[in-house]
């Protein structure tokens, strides 16, 4: 009896069909958005009459829209960099430091996962008001660094646990300081997972609206801008055109993060 013999006594539930059907249901609304972005009319009605690329052209003459997209890139990159650096520190400390210090650190680093976004948004909003810090892209990035930290920590912690401590011992026996050991030995070993953590944090930030709405000043990120504009029906096609372009970017990044996270070193 070989190992696939488990498959012999399967239930007759057609799971493949269920899966395929679910994929269709998941993709249909997105496909609809895609179609809508090529539709001349600002109301979607079938059959489609005139198709156009005008909405895509219009994106590039809409300065506010472009500025918002650029803001999101900046906030995403800044918060992902901070979250990944901190997540790396948390992982190294938790895996290597034999001290009671390490447990509350890991707990705190993943705590944002279980705090509803609105509570995080409200509390950061109050903090910045209390400190008299004007709301800006920097406050959004600070908030997003906290949202990304659990993801960075979990990804990097898994990889760090697999790094052989004897490699570090060897480097240090040969006279390297621990800082050098981390930089020359541990960082390269963590390579793809660092990138995966960074991309995950970037995507979390890039798409985030609930916390950002509380922390953004006059200069909105793309989701905040989108949220503000969605009530104007005639703006919808342009917004969707922009979003479709960004979507192609984030989907690519997500796939990259996913592939990198699964790659065996």
């Amino acid at each position: 009896m070989n190992h696939s013999a488990i498959g012999v006594g399967r239930t007759r539930v057609p799971l493949g069909t269920v899966f395929a059907l679910m994929l269709v249901l998941l993709y249909f609304p997105i496909a609809l958005l895609f179609v809508f972005s090529f539709n001349q009319n600002t109301v979607l009605s079938f059959p489609l009459r005139e198709l156009t690329l005008d909405w895509y052209a219009e994106v590039f003459s809409d300065d506010a829209l472009l500025a918002a997209a650029r803001n999101s890139l900046v906030v995403g990159a800044a918060s992902a960099t901070v979250a990944t650096a901190l997540g790396f520190a948390v992982s190294v400390v938790f895996v290597r430091l034999r001290s009671a210090l390490r447990i509350p650190l890991l707990a705190l680093a993943v705590l944002p996962l279980i705090v509803p976004f609105i509570v995080l948004g409200v509390s950061l909003f109050l903090l910045f008001s209390f400190l008299d810090v004007p709301r800006s892209l920097a406050t959004v990035a600070a908030g997003h660094s906290i949202l990304g930290l659990p993801f960075a920590t979990l990804i990097l912690f898994a990889r760090m646990s697999a790094v052989d401590p004897q490699l570090e011992d060897a480097a240090m026996d040969l006279g390297a300081s621990y800082a050098t050991t981390l930089r020359r030995i541990v960082l390269p070993l963590m390579g793809p997972s660092l990138l995966s953590a960074w991309l995950t944090c970037f995507i979390v930030s890039f798409d985030e609206v609930a916390v950002a709405l509380f922390l953004a000043g006059g200069d909105p990120t793309f989701p905040v801008f989108l949220y503000g504009q969605l009530r104007f029906a005639q703006r919808l096609p342009v917004l969707i055109a922009m979003a479709v372009m960004l979507m192609i970017g984030t989907v690519t990044l997500t796939l990259a993060a996913f592939v990198l996270a699964r790659r065996r070193p």
Partner: peptide, 11 residues
């Protein structure tokens, strides 16, 4: 399965 999840939440 994950591609739809990578599409913007608001979208």
């Amino acid at each position: 399965l994950l591609v739809p999840f990578a599409v913007s939440f608001l979208l």
